[in-house]
Design a protein around this nucleic acid. Structure first.
Length: 114
DNA sequence: CTGGTGACCATTA
DNA sequence: TTAATGGCCACCA
């Protein structure tokens, strides 16, 4: 019998996955979706974070899009808020982008290069 | 049911 | 590099 997973259940799974993001690392929406078995449903991750309950301690700021950019609008100061939190984690910004090869998580290739 | 929207992603030009 | 397009799926009117 095939049962579809209720979205509410997926939400908790997403929040849980976001919590396991190590410090000084960033994950993409699609990456989180994959970790939750929701591959291809990156939008759901964004939706889950947007619907994040108040008072829920989740490092949502470590989640960015595949372009290494912050998806939040600059208006309202949402963009700067996330950026500031990331800089606090020693995550360096290259202009408006983050180097996913260096800060991306999970690490695909532990390739070291200067 | 349909149609529109969204803290997205990959491909193509 | 940016912009446009199609796809994916949950949510809302």
């Amino acid at each position: 019998m095939k049962r579809r997973k209720p979205p509410a259940d997926s939400y908790e799974r997403i929040w849980k996955a976001v919590r396991r993001i190590p410090k000084r690392r960033v994950a993409t929406y699609g990456g989180i979706a994959s970790l939750c078995g929701l591959s291809g449903q990156a939008r759901l991750v964004g939706y889950a974070l947007h619907n994040l309950p108040h008072g829920f301690s989740v490092p949502w700021h470590r989640v960015i899009n595949s372009q290494g950019r912050i998806s939040l609008p600059k208006l309202g100061g949402h963009y700067e808020r996330q950026r500031k939190l990331l800089e606090k984690e020693s995550v360096k910004f290259n202009g408006e982008r983050i180097d996913l090869e260096r800060y991306g998580w999970p690490e695909k290739h532990s390739k070291k290069k200067s």
